[in-house]
Amino acid sequence: MNLTLKIWRQKNAASPGCLETHEARDVSPDMSFLEMLDMVNERLVAGGQEPFVFDSDCREGICGTCSLVINGVPHGSRKGTTVCQLHMRHFQDGQTITVEPWRARAFPIVKDLIVDRAAFDRIMLAGGFISVNTGNAPEANALPVSKEIADLAMDAAACIGCGACVAVCKNASAMLFVAAKVSHLNYLPQGQAEKDRRVKNMVLQMDQEGFGNCTVTGSCEAVCPKEISLDFIAKMNRDYAVAVVKGELKKSAAGGTG
């Protein structure tokens, strides 16, 4: 099949970018979208032109590195699919396809289609972890967890942190990502020790990064390649309210040295 591509070209964060038109000839319907772009790039290089840079790693839908907006939809319009797992058979011969990077103030463009998602890392550093005992691995059944809670936590943990939720949200809000990460640990018994601190710190960091606010449109849930539910945002809202109402713990006067 033959396609017309309109691809975003941008030298760096400081310079403005624009859409460039390129023809992709003899595309096999069995190729993934990224393989198709690889082919286009190889031809560009052979012709002495500069290839487009884009992010990818596992190419099997589990790492969350690939990040392309296809015709206005992050990861393209196949439900529950990352763009690395999107195949060309879902496009039509002769179609024009627009390829753009994630667009958000908190995700500055590095070059062409690559954005800097370090904001997500900083949110994780603010609270996306648990305290663990050192030493031998604990006995697996020492911490009882109900099946329902384990399942919910697993659903939240499925988030691969790609940022498609931010890319699609009309407000560039990171609520779905943060909610998945908060809920994952706040549901599990291992996460209880830092429960309140976690949600407060992660929300604070999210706000500082300059993401927008949630207006409950549900677009994030619709494009999420892991189909993370909007219900986790409700859970985070509740956990945050409880944490703020509880307030800070009183500091020990002796500083714990007793």
Binding site: N71, R103, A106, V168, G212, N213, T215, G218, E221, V223
Partner: peptide
């Protein structure tokens, strides 16, 4: 929310769900 996306997408954004 306006400030969170200084550069928008080409074409109208899909209303998506």
């Amino acid at each position: 929310n306006r400030a969170a996306r200084p550069v928008g997408y080409a074409g109208d954004p899909a209303p998506l769900a």
